[in-house]
Amino acid sequence: MNCRAVFGQQSPVNASTIRLSIIPTFGAKSIVIRDSAFQAKDARNTQIDMLKFYISRIQFLHKGAVVLEEAQSFHLIDAAREVSFHLAVQNKRGVRFDAVRFHLGIDSATSVFGAMGGDLDPTRGMYWTWQSGYINFKCEGKSNACTARNNEFQFHLGGYKQPFDCLQTLTFPISVSDTITIQFDVERFLSKIDMAKHHHFMSPSADAVRLSAQAAESFRIVH
């Protein structure tokens, strides 16, 4: 089960292609992690060392019904790789749609499928080893608000089995357009965490489920 969008490559865009961009931001500012971490100029002196998450099962809807669904739809969005922000979904039939829907994370069927390639290859660093399952969302960095050693926080969210199924489904209404931009605001996500109490989540748990919902609420459509 290989991904259509191979990691590090961008599919060609043509008239029948929907361009969907998922942009990590800190507030209004785009996050790009290159040779060094992203440094925010906020009161907490927040630093983002790593921000990676899976977007999967991208669907387009018209009046609530699915009219287009991407095949083999698994994408790892990595703040350290700008090329991963931009997805291209083929719309050969030119269907009209008024909403886009996708998962944040990897579904349970895929989680028990065995070894897979592309963005799902375990070498991407998004697969737990001591207990099977994909890490849906990883955010690591530093904040003055964090009371852990070196002010470091690590949030690895995942879990595909009840009662700790962390998969989130997001739906955004859109005016008919072939270019869609959605932002993930990490400042909004972190602002909901009391880092005096919580500095790291590393396994499926009720907290991981709660934070996954908070991560989902930190997405917003720009246009």
Binding site: G114, A115, P122, T129, Q131, S132
Partner: peptide, 16 residues
């Protein structure tokens, strides 16, 4: 039973 598929089993000892 922490590992859900034979393909993924080797990851556990490699990483431990």
């Amino acid at each position: 039973g922490a590992i859900n598929h034979l393909d993924m089993q080797a990851l556990a000892p490699i990483s431990n």
